[in-house]
Every structure is written in C-alpha cells, then in structure tokens.
Design a protein around this nucleic acid. Structure first.
Lengths: 226, 226
DNA sequence: CAGTAAGTCTACTGTTCGGTAAGAAAGTTG
DNA sequence: CAACTTTCTTACCGAACAGTAGACTTACTG
C-alpha cells in the first residue's frame, strides 16, 4: 500500500536486520511456528533475500543462536575473567552480567533457552555448546573457589559439575522470577543467588553431608527398590 | 510384514497406548516435528483412531502433558506431604520423588520440561500449571522451614519464591547432570542438593547478605548504566 | 549513458502433514 | 445369521510453508 521504495542496503547490514527480526519472531513463536515469510515481511524485504543470505531456515536460526550465544558468553566471560579477583567475585560478576543480558536481550535469551529442544541435530548442538561454555566457566570457578577456601579438597570433577549445574539451573529459572519482579535489578538477583549458592556449595564439596535433623526419624518405609 | 491381525481393544486401553507412544515421540522429536502419522503407526493403529479418541494433535499433546504432570505432581506431593515431618524432611522426600520420577519416566519429563515452549496458548498454560503446582509446594516448604527454624522472620512472599525458583531450577538442570551420571541415585541427588540449598536458603531469607570478601575490592569499573 | 554487479522482487513448485469422509471388519446379542 | 455397536482402515483433501527460477531495479564505474 504505502509504496515504500526499499532502500538498498549492503549485505552485511541487511543480514543483521534479518537476524534481528528473526530473533524476535523465533522468540515469540518458536522455531517451527515461525515462518520465513513473516520474518521477511517484518524485516521489510522479500523471502528470497533471506534464503540468499542465510541459506535456509535452519541456517537462519543457527545464525540467531550463534549471535546471541556469542553475546551471552562474551558477557559472562568478560565479566568473570576480569583481573585478579577471587572466584567469589568473579562468579558474582558473571552472574550479574548474565542477569543483565537477560534483562536487555530477552528475545535472545528466549531463543537460546527455550527454543532449542525440538530442533535438528545441528541446531541442538549449537545450542548446547553455549550452555556448555558457561557451565565450564562456572565449574572452574566453583572448583577454584573451594580449593582456595578450604584447601585442595581433592574433589572429583563430578562434585564441581554438580554445583555448577545447580547454579546455572537456578539462574535459568530465576529469569522467570525476575520477569515477574521488574523492580529487581541484576545486582539484586546476583546478591540473592550468591547468598544461596556460595555457602551451600561448600557443604556439598566439603563432604559434610546435610544430616537430616534428629527430631523425627527419617522415613524408612521404602519397601522395594529405593 | 507380520500380518498381525490387530486385536480390537476397548477405547480406554487404546487411548492409553496412544498416549504412551505419543509421549515417547513428542519427547524424541518435539511437538511440531512429531507427526501424528508416526505416532499412529508406532501405536499400531491408523491415524483416524488418534483423531477419534484425542480430537486433534493439540488435544493429544495436552493429554500427554496432563497425564505426565499429574504423575509428577502426585509423586512430589505424595512424598512431601506425608506425615508430620519437618519441612526439611518433606522437601527431601519431594526432591527424592522428583528425581525418581525423572529416572523412571524420562520421556514424560522431557515432554513436560523441554517441549512446552513453542506451543499454542492452551498447551503452554497446561504446562505452566504443573510447574506452578510444584513451585507452590516448594515455596510453602521454604517459608515454613525458615519460620520454624528462625522464627517468623516476616518474609515477603518474594523471598520464598526466589528460593523456590532457585531450587526448582537447580533440580531441573540437575536432571541433565543425572543423565550423565547413571550411577547416582535419586537419593544421592537429593542429598547433594539439600546440602546446597538448605543452608544457603537461610542466608537469603534471613536477610544476612552475602558480603563480598574484603581481600580485593569489588570491581567499581562500571562506567555507564550498571 | 552503456556496462556491470549487487540488491530485490513476483510468482511459482513440491511436499509435508493435520484433518476427514465413508465404509469394512470384529465382536455382541437376539 | 441378522441386527447393531464399537473398533478400525483406506484413501483422500486442503492449507501452510520451505525453497526456487528468473526477471527487474538501483547504483556505481568509466
């Protein structure tokens, strides 16, 4: 209707525009429910452009995934790696960067987090990699932090990975809580989460088991396979 | 191949068979990538049967979701609600039931957990409800537990919900870890997780903030908006 | 303003897949 | 076996949509 004569733009720019829109649409609809037609239309171009630049729908999604993952990992890594800080402070910085990223790039986060399951192997791999990258960093911080605090406790990788999974998973889920509490800042999120994990972590890694309190005897009513 | 003359089965039975297969297929492929044809074939019947009994693809998925959610919530609730146990023990029992459920119904868990994002509003609602049900229970346990241990600390719902989100999110993520460590029992998972959360929880709720250790000053190098 | 390359479009194809119409076989009851 | 119900099938429709062919349009270069 409005005969908007499309300005021609260099490929690099157009490509980013397409990815920008695609992130929004994928975030809103999910991979399969999103149509390339819609993405093209919202991007202000026609479908063949998308295919010319991004090869396929899968290629487009991977491009989205990759860009957002790079941003997230860079944000976390950049924050957590800085200087000679202690592991605590580095983990705190990383978490703060993470929550800030989610605040500011919600669509990107949704694409990374929620829509990577039911996809092709290539996509799933791409998606898993970002999480693994973060997980590896957190694991390292956990291991280092414990060793520094409690001496080389000769921990299995297992233990550090367990804690890292818990922390990353908690952070994941807390993005929902954060969405319901817009007043809470990334800093506040971080402080709260650090309060929870940094103490409890030692408990797991130190080998001190959480002992069920004595008052009532533990339920021994498990009959068959425990 | 084997010209298996299909035995006619009463609707109730057939319906459950279809749902059984559908859970597997949805778990493996995801909602959109799963085809009703495949589900019908694996169930050993033809497609119109699926539509006759389950109305639509969405109806089929919701049936899956509902059944698995009921099982999971029942498992958690049944374990966590038993007797006059303390909140700690009840949370422990709930977590153990949860990890057991995931061990034994991996497909159901995958359907519930990973494939509920990119779906219609009806499906998303159904899926969110299961999580909310568990979240509500955990929140209650957290609140009660703290009050019993530290007196009525006059906590906002906010705080208990934060902790509950962290716990549930950690448990979610730890199912991945558990998948990589088949030797770890649900009991072991539970013990480890309890170690982490039950101590740290108090820290959050008690209002004692985690103070960044003094050795190195906190990074004040944040220039613009933090 | 011709020549050329990059950007862009309209209009189409082929396929996959959700959903259905119409009726056949199997069981049940006289 | 005839009437009837429930289970089940073959064979199809129509829409949505990923992907493409080929032409057109703008902009830069000499």
């Amino acid at each position: 209707m409005t005969e908007k004569r499309r300005r021609r733009l260099p490929r690099q720019v157009r490509e980013q525009q397409i990815i920008d829109v695609a992130v929004q649409v994928f975030s809103k609809r999910g991979y399969h429910a999103a149509s390339v037609d819609e993405i093209a239309e919202l991007a202000g171009i026609s479908k063949p452009m998308v295919y010319l630049y991004l090869e396929s729908k899968e290629g487009l999604f991977i491009a989205c995934l990759r860009r957002e993952a790079e941003r997230l990992v860079a944000a976390f890594h950049g924050a957590a790696a800085e200087g000679e800080l202690t592991p605590e402070l580095r983990l705190r910085a990383g978490l703060r960067a993470f929550f800030s990223f989610v605040s500011e790039h919600r669509d990107g986060w949704v694409v990374l987090h929620r829509h990577a399951a039911e996809l092709s192997a290539a996509i799933a791999a791409e998606s898993a990699q970002a999480r693994r990258a973060v997980m590896a960093e957190v694991t390292a911080l956990v291991r280092t932090g414990i060793e520094e605090n409690d001496g080389p406790a000769r921990l299995g990788d297992e233990d550090a990975e367990f804690v890292a999974h818990a922390i990353v998973g908690a952070a994941d889920a807390l993005t929902d809580w954060m969405a319901d509490h817009p007043a809470e800042s990334p800093e506040g999120m971080t402080r709260r989460l650090m309060n929870m994990v940094w103490v409890g972590m030692r408990n797991v890694l130190g080998g001190e088991t959480w002992t069920p309190p004595p008052p009532t005897p533990p339920p021994d009513t498990s009959p068959g396979k425990g």
